[in-house]
Structure formats: structure tokens, C-alpha cells
């Protein structure tokens, strides 16, 4: 699959920026618009862009992990945020917050862990769909 030189070069610069932006959106969530779902979609768009410019196989190599593992880790991170309360002797899904206020981010709590889980889950599912569709496309060509 051939694509333009401009796109290839631009992607190389855009990829880290988009990923950073997705992380910013993830952390911005909870109190302001943002969160794991949109963050995950933005991160997936970064890899999708790379898949368009360089081909799917390179994008998969760049990702290094199988999207299914991303889905599974996302789910387990989200689940652990709920189980945290259970091991603390409280009701499932109870939220806990740190006393200490971190610079920039603010207080960190279990909802953030849940959001990180969502982030990976959405990233994994979006990439799984994009990769399998794109692979089919390449096979046809």
C-alpha cells in the first residue's frame, strides 16, 4: 500500500502529539468534559492514522500488544477500581480519594482508575475493529 510522503512525515510528528492529547483528555475528565471514552477514541485515531499512512502491519508493530489484550487489561483495571472498595470492607464500587492534592491533576481516586480502564478498553476495541477492517481491505487489494 502506497501513500503520500507528506502524510507519512506528518503522521510521524502527529502521532505523539495526538497520544499526549488523548492522555490530557483522559486526565481532564470527571470534573470537566473529557474522560476515558473520548481519550481512548482519540488515542485510537492516532494509531488509525498511522495504519492509513504506513500500513496495518506497521501500525500493529508500533502498538506491540494485541488489541484483545488491551481490551482485557482495560476491563480488569476498571473492575479493580470497584474491587478496591470490597477489599477495604465497603460496598462494591465505592469511590476513594487521596488526601494529597497532586499538582496539575488534583486529587486522585478510584474513579480515575476506572476511567483509565475505560481508556484502554475503548482503545483496544476501536483498534481491533479498525485493524481487522483494514486487513480485509489490504487482502482485497
Amino acid at each position: 500500500m502506497r501513500s503520500s510522503l507528506i502524510l507519512c512525515t506528518a503522521t510521524r510528528f502527529l502521532l505523539p502529539i495526538i497520544l499526549m492529547f488523548s492522555f490530557f483528555i483522559l486526565l481532564r475528565g470527571h470534573n470537566e468534559p473529557g474522560g476515558g471514552f473520548i481519550g481512548g477514541l482519540v488515542a485510537a485515531s492516532a494509531f488509525a492514522l498511522y495504519a492509513i499512512s504506513h500500513g496495518v502491519t506497521y501500525a500493529q508493530q508500533l502498538l506491540k500488544v494485541n488489541p484483545i489484550n488491551l481490551i482485557a487489561s482495560g476491563l480488569i483495571i476498571a473492575l479493580s477500581s470497584g474491587l478496591f472498595a470490597v477489599f477495604n470492607g465497603s460496598n462494591f464500587m465505592q469511590g476513594y480519594w487521596s488526601e494529597f492534592k497532586f499538582p496539575v491533576i488534583g486529587k486522585i481516586g478510584t474513579p480515575l482508575i476506572f476511567d483509565i480502564g475505560v481508556y484502554f478498553l475503548v482503545l483496544g476495541i476501536a483498534l481491533l475493529i479498525i485493524f481487522s477492517l483494514a486487513e480485509e481491505e489490504e487482502e482485497i487489494q
Partner: peptide
């Protein structure tokens, strides 16, 4: 009584572990 949610959490947990063992 966290026992009540276990019938929901357990299958999810095992589904996730199975995803790792795809």
C-alpha cells in the same frame, strides 16, 4: 453484603482472564 454482586463479578472476571488467554 458484597456476596450479592459476586454472581455478576465472577463471570466478568473469568471472561477477562479468558481474553488474556485468547
Amino acid at each position: 453484603m458484597n456476596l450479592i454482586v459476586l454472581p455478576v463479578i465472577l463471570p466478568l472476571l473469568f471472561a477477562v482472564i479468558m481474553l488474556f488467554a485468547w
